[in-house]
Simulated assay, not measured.
Amino acid sequence: MKYYLSIIAMMAAFAFYAQETTNTAQKWSAGRPDGHAPIPVMGDHMHGKGEWMFSYRYMYMNMEDLKQGSDDASFGDALENYMVTPTEMPMNMHMLGAMFAPSDKITVMAMFNYLSMEMDHVTRMGGTFITEASGFGDIQISGLYRFFNQNQQTLHGQLGFSIPTGSITESDVTPASAPNETELPYPMQIGSGTFDTNLALTYLGQGEINSWGVQLRGIFRFGENDREFRYGNRYSLNNWFAIKAADWLSFSARLEGLIVGEIEGEDPNLNPMMVITADTENSGGNFVNGGLGFNIYIPSGALKNLRFGFEVASPIYQDVNGIQLRTRETLTLGTQYAF
């Protein structure tokens, strides 16, 4: 927590410095390929009064093999204490977003998503099976406020809320439940089931051919959902650096620190002794992720302000609570259009 407070203090210092500059200082500009953050970063920029932006993002994340703490673990390690362990979990997410700026200081944003995922399992007896889940997730509504935009630097805050429209009762047939369906464990659910608060603070800076950014974000969950649990809070610190290779192309590198809290409470419909994903002690952890990507921007013509972004990311460090699936690669691509 002290580390995050120091980041906030650093951003406040940037804000004080920028406020001291003259009114004629050059403003930070979104009208270049590196004017937006790498495509996985949400709420990274704002818009001018009256401007709209619509976006689409696709994310693929693969989880495979097991981690116990920060060490690799075998399926045999998990099956010593559980009847079943997952072996792999690919996930696909489609995200639609809309942004509108009623003023130069305020931008409002809404995000909708659709998830599909499957989980491969192996049992203590050597059998295998797959479960699947898909559906629309929770809706995200946010407001962004710009504190300053001077001297090619800008700082803005975000306050958002998650509406629990995603399912937390996804079910499928397993060997133990056949021919009936049974409720799936926590990682296979589509939503959170709780009204969550999303807070973020983003600092951006630009040079002639480069740009950089820092974003501190927290997702805070309150109360319990209808299944008598809540997912853990999430705290992330994203840092990125981009090089403008041309008026239409930039390359970026990103480093993210992520803390995920354990699930609190317990779903009475799940047996924590059956599979590792139904045991709340096997949730949450500390992660460091790195990503490389590019942005393409059309600066003129009929398609002016149309953008494409791509990034491939992978974990540099994982320290999970208990025993969990290991995160492998994450691919994100998307397009954004402002007018």
Rank of each mutant, 00 (worst) to 15 (best):
1 M>L: 12
4 Y>V: 02
5 L>R: 12
9 A>H: 03
14 F>A: 14
15 A>M: 11
16 F>P: 09
17 Y>T: 14
19 Q>K: 10
22 T>D: 15
23 N>Y: 04
25 A>N: 15
31 G>F: 06
35 G>S: 11
36 H>D: 08
36 H>N: 05
38 P>K: 12
39 I>G: 06
50 G>F: 09
51 E>M: 11
53 M>V: 08
57 R>Y: 02
57 R>E: 15
63 M>Q: 13
65 D>F: 03
66 L>K: 04
67 K>W: 03
68 Q>T: 06
70 S>K: 11
76 G>T: 04
78 A>W: 03
85 T>G: 00
91 M>V: 08
93 M>F: 05
93 M>Y: 09
105 K>A: 12
107 T>K: 04
111 M>E: 07
114 Y>L: 10
114 Y>S: 13
114 Y>T: 12
115 L>A: 06
115 L>N: 09
118 E>K: 08
119 M>V: 04
120 D>V: 00
122 V>L: 07
124 R>K: 14
126 G>Y: 00
127 G>C: 02
131 T>V: 04
132 E>M: 01
134 S>F: 07
138 D>C: 08
140 Q>S: 15
141 I>G: 10
144 L>V: 03
145 Y>D: 00
152 Q>R: 15
152 Q>W: 03
154 T>M: 15
155 L>M: 13
164 P>W: 03
167 S>P: 13
168 I>N: 07
175 P>S: 06
182 T>L: 01
183 E>D: 14
183 E>V: 14
184 L>F: 05
186 Y>N: 13
202 T>N: 15
206 Q>S: 09
209 I>E: 14
211 S>C: 10
211 S>F: 03
211 S>W: 02
215 Q>I: 02
228 E>F: 11
229 F>E: 08
238 N>K: 14
241 F>N: 02
243 I>E: 10
256 E>T: 14
258 L>M: 13
261 G>E: 08
264 E>S: 15
266 E>L: 15
267 D>F: 10
271 N>P: 09
272 P>V: 07
276 I>M: 10
278 A>I: 10
288 V>W: 07
289 N>M: 08
290 G>M: 11
300 S>L: 12
302 A>H: 04
305 N>P: 05
307 R>V: 10
316 I>M: 08
324 Q>A: 12
329 E>S: 05
